[in-house]
Structure formats: C-alpha cells, structure tokens
C-alpha cells in the first residue's frame, strides 16, 4: 500500500472532518501512481482467486470499463492469463432515477455466462455504495455468479449502505462536499485522480 504515494486512511475511518487544503483542485494520484495501483490490484485479484480460473471482470461504465481492461491487460502481460472483460450498466437499477431527468443508459456486455463465474465488479470511485448496490441487482438478473467481488481504484469513504470493496487501489479521505475526479487516458486523454472543491450533490451517487 505504501507504494501508491497517495494519502492513506483506514477503510472504516474516512474521517470526514479531516483537514485538507482548500485549493480548488489537488492531484492525489498521477499517471505513474495509477499504473502502479492497477498493477497491484491485478495481482491481488489473481492472488485472492488463486489464479484466473472462472474469473470475469465487469466494469461499470464509463471509467470502470476502462479500468477493467487495464486490469486484464496487466494480468495478460505479467501472468500470461487472459481474463474476460465485460461491461455492466446499472442505470436502470439506480435508486435515484426519479430524482432527475431521464438518464442515458450505457452499454452492457457479457463476455461469459454469469452463472458460476467469479465476477469482479470494477469501478473508479467507491462513495455511497449505491452504484454497487445497483450493480449487484443488475448482475442478479443476468445469472447467478459463484461469487462477486468488488475492485475500485479509489475508496473515498462516506458509505450509505453496508458495502465494502475487496480490492482498493487507494483510500483517499475526503469531505462530503468534495468531488473525486478520475480521469483516464482512454476517455479523458489524461491519467489523473484529483479532488475538486464545491458542493455538488448531483455527483453524490458512487
């Protein structure tokens, strides 16, 4: 964990009141750190599963899908194993659909039968836990996995549901008014995780 260079915190103690500097935006993970974090997570996932047997990575659009592909690429490069990668859109399973105008639905793609696979859900930021709750419901309608794990690049705390991640890239303590912005080269042209100020309740959904 110490190789991430990111601020650390215990997962169960995100310390909402912790003093952080109040500049409008600060970078908490740069490109190299993201690469190292992904490599470590890929190893941890394989280690926890005792290999790639029955494993499938399901990214939650949009950035979770890009991360799932990165994890699979590391597994292929370093361990020489090919792990199927898919996408699981959870929009229609959200609990806040009625709170805003109709949301655009993303793409769902199943690389393998969900039944009896070990599905690793991959997302960029774990926050309230509501997206993961929606993902578990969505997955349940697609089949009955042998097990479901959760891998996230950033755990920023402030959970609202009894959900925790199995594999966390970096614990980043935040205030609830802040926004964690994950930018990945595949989508945003740059690799960077930053914390932005400003109360933006509309973003409070991860």
């Amino acid at each position: 964990m110490s190789d991430t260079g990111a601020p650390q915190a215990r997962p169960e103690d995100p310390t909402p009141g912790v003093e952080v500097d109040s500049t409008p935006s600060r970078i908490v993970l740069d490109a190299d750190q993201i690469t190292r974090v992904c490599a470590r997570m890929a190893h941890q996932i394989l280690e926890a599963n005792r290999g790639a047997e029955g494993l499938a990575l399901m990214g939650i659009p949009t950035r979770g899908v890009a991360l799932a592909h990165r994890l699979a690429a590391v597994m292929d490069e370093v361990e020489g194993v090919r792990v199927p990668v898919g996408a699981l859109d959870v929009t229609m399973y959200r609990d806040d659909l009625r709170r805003q105008p109709t949301r655009a639905v993303g793409h769902t793609h199943l690389p393998v039968e969900v039944d009896d696979s070990t599905v690793v859900l991959v997302d960029d930021v774990l926050y309230s836990g509501r997206t993961v709750r929606a993902a578990l419901d969505a997955l349940g309608d697609l089949g009955r996995p042998r097990a479901v794990r959760l891998a996230v690049l950033v755990d920023r705390g402030h959970r609202e549901l009894p959900i925790r991640a199995d594999h966390v890239g970096s614990y980043i303590p935040t205030r609830s008014g802040e926004h964690v912005s994950v930018r990945l080269a595949e989508i945003d042209g740059v690799n960077q995780v930053s914390i932005e100020q400003g109360n933006d309740p509309g973003r409070r959904e991860a």
Binding site: D89, T91, M92, Y93, L97, A104, V105, G106, H107, T108, D137, G140, D141, L142, G143
Partner: peptide, 22 residues
C-alpha cells in the same frame, strides 16, 4: 437516442430474467 437505447433493451429478450426495474 431511442434507437441506441432500443439496442440495449433488445438484450433483455435473451436474459434469464426478462425484467428491468426502471
């Protein structure tokens, strides 16, 4: 938008649970 979403909706026909909670 409607046609793209219909493509996603068409996947429901092949699922074990033909139901979305939306």
């Amino acid at each position: 938008e409607i046609l793209d979403l219909a493509e996603e909706m068409s996947l429901v026909q092949g699922r074990p649970v033909k139901k979305l909670p939306a």
